[in-house]
Design a protein around this nucleic acid. Structure first.
Lengths: 341, 341
DNA sequence: CCCCCTATTGTTAACGTGTGCATTCCTGTG
DNA sequence: CACAGGAATGCACACGTTAACAATAGGGGG
């Protein structure tokens, strides 16, 4: 069928070994011979059979990029930025294999032979089994986006607690006191951290958040919509709502409009993530930027470093979030701030 | 290192040939022997070495999913839906390898050995060379999202001309006569079709679109914003603007707000694509839904059909778009419609 | 002039799997 | 009883590549 090193060898009048060495630029081969063989290979449009290479070299040239789920709960922007980031790093050396963890019925097929390394973009504690499986098989691994304690794995993520803390502080600085929270999807670690950061900000400023000022959310538009409706039905609604992601913030704003209110004049809304469209909704959303693309770049680079130098670096890297101030938060005058009790 | 069929053979007291046949459920092997070997394989946690299989069977178990670009111009939602659609079809049989076509410096490495089949999600005429390369190598291929005339390739896409035609008709039905167009990114075939459909609608209803009612666009928010600003600066601005995608429509609405206008009361805006957030902006965007996920599902299924039955089906499949009526288009009373000249 | 060392190339086996062809054993039939 | 034929299994090789080891030639030093 296709051209092999043996074909080249025959034409060059050398052994296939010599061809192999020449094409791999081995110092054993005379420069002149190399040139001749390279020219011949070029001319015959030779492409190495990577399956054969893989078999003998025990490398797959595959990099796995695993998401918690492809079918639900992952936002499109998040997904896109993660792939972009990784892709920008791997050059031609690896193939990028994208998978949803929830598509696996068994991890049996995940072996050292089939993946040179794996990047898990984790959004849920439920990813723990696969992480341990991969680590257990000794496959180089980096977990992005979620802190993980398994030993021997690289871990790159943003400091979301800090990000949510800054968001909370910002709302307080703007004069808000009646501040409500729409929580993230249960089971997603990010939900915990964002909530914790928010609470720390409240606590440090002596602000009490009543139970009625908290609503669960699913990270989607509908749940943000619903939560906001509940807040607005309260006898004393909040003046500001911190949403654990942008999509819920959009849903929340929508609910405010539905109730005849205007954002931010009547109620302030803040999101988290700085999704691509956050700057273009009306009003433009004030939010917190998680550097997903940077995280995935950083993670991919460190993973490649481990693979190629056969290291087992195992550090945790925290990247900074950034407060993005736009238009959806109103500065309140002191007398309007309505401190409760 | 890891368990091979030879290890199993030794333990079972048979030859590795028998093990191979047993695990592949060959009718040559006694049922009893098969059972014994399967049990042993299970117990030893045997995983076949796919590199070795690939080498001898001449199959890679890889499916390529190629996008025109990963780094620019592809919308996140589009990207996400395409991967989701394909992923939902391929089950466990194939690995999905995601690539940006513009990352390739040479197509040399794209061979029949490394991909059992390839799905090209094409957004530009510039993809033609890679499509011809793939087809030329005899690799099973399906091109999604863009019509392609190369012989011997499957082609699945939405009828965008028709979609834009319906959009244009809808605006006219709502009483609009001064209708402007923000065009798609130059070089993207979709831009041509959407524009053509729009023009057909105008022509069939005898409506003339002056040159000032057309602005180029790049499929991004900024260009939509800019284009709308130009329309609004005209002595007689349009009453409705058809944008060749949703992102530009968002930008356009933003520009309208910036000029102190309200959508749809003062000006109507229509998009194309029905991006995930289209329903949640304010006002919710009236648009045309391209069934991307369905396209990619359909394409993947047909590709797999070709691969597994060794066929070379080569049809073009057009899937219907759907008009999604929301809130961003105002119905005009006859006397307001301001027919020109 | 011989031997050793080095530079260059070839021989052969190995990676793990699948398959054409032999081999063995058994059963039925003439 | 011999023999055909089928069922079950093994042998040996192939896939395309790399690498340990062998082989050859040439050059320099004694």
């Amino acid at each position: 069928m296709s051209v092999t090193i043996k074909d080249i060898a025959k034409l060059a009048g050398v052994s296939h070994t010599t061809v192999s060495r020449a094409l791999n630029n081995s110092p054993l081969i005379q420069e002149e011979t190399k040139e001749r063989i390279r020219a011949l290979a070029e001319q015959l449009d030779y492409t190495p059979n990577y399956n054969a290479k893989s078999l003998v070299l025990d490398r797959s040239y595959n990099l796995g990029l695993f998401f918690t789920t492809l079918s639900q709960g992952t936002s499109a922007g998040f997904f896109y930025e993660a792939i972009r980031g990784v892709n920008s790093v791997i050059q031609d050396r690896y193939q990028l294999i994208v998978k949803g963890i929830d598509d696996y019925t068994s991890f049996h097929s995940i072996t050292k032979k089939s993946f040179d390394g794996i990047i898990v973009v984790s959004q849920s504690d439920n990813d723990q089994p696969i992480i341990e499986h991969i680590a257990g098989k000794g496959i180089p691994l980096v977990v992005l986006n979620r802190p993980v304690d398994t030993s021997g794995v690289l871990n790159v993520l943003s400091d979301e607690e800090q990000g949510a803390y800054h968001a909370g502080c910002y709302l307080i600085e703007q004069g808000h006191r009646r501040i409500a929270l729409i929580e993230g999807r249960k089971g997603f670690r990010s939900a915990k951290h964002r909530q914790a950061g928010f609470e720390r900000a409240m606590a440090e400023h002596g602000i009490v958040t009543p139970a009625t000022y908290r609503q669960p959310g699913l990270y989607d538009l509908e749940s943000g919509h619903l939560a906001m409706q509940k807040f607005l039905a309260l006898p004393e609604p909040p003046t500001a709502v911190f949403c654990c992601n942008d999509e819920m913030a959009l849903g929340a704003m929508k609910a405010a409009y539905g109730a005849g209110l205007r954002v931010p004049r009547d109620i302030s809304v803040m999101g988290f993530d700085d999704t691509v469209f956050a700057g273009y909704v009306t009003p433009a959303l004030t939010t917190v930027r998680r550097p997903i693309e940077q995280i995935s770049k950083e993670g991919a680079m460190r993973l490649l470093g481990n693979i190629e130098n056969k290291l087992h670096t195992t550090e945790r890297v925290l990247l900074h979030t950034e407060l993005i101030v736009r238009e959806s938060v109103q500065a309140l005058k002191a007398e309007e701030s309505g401190r409760d009790a």
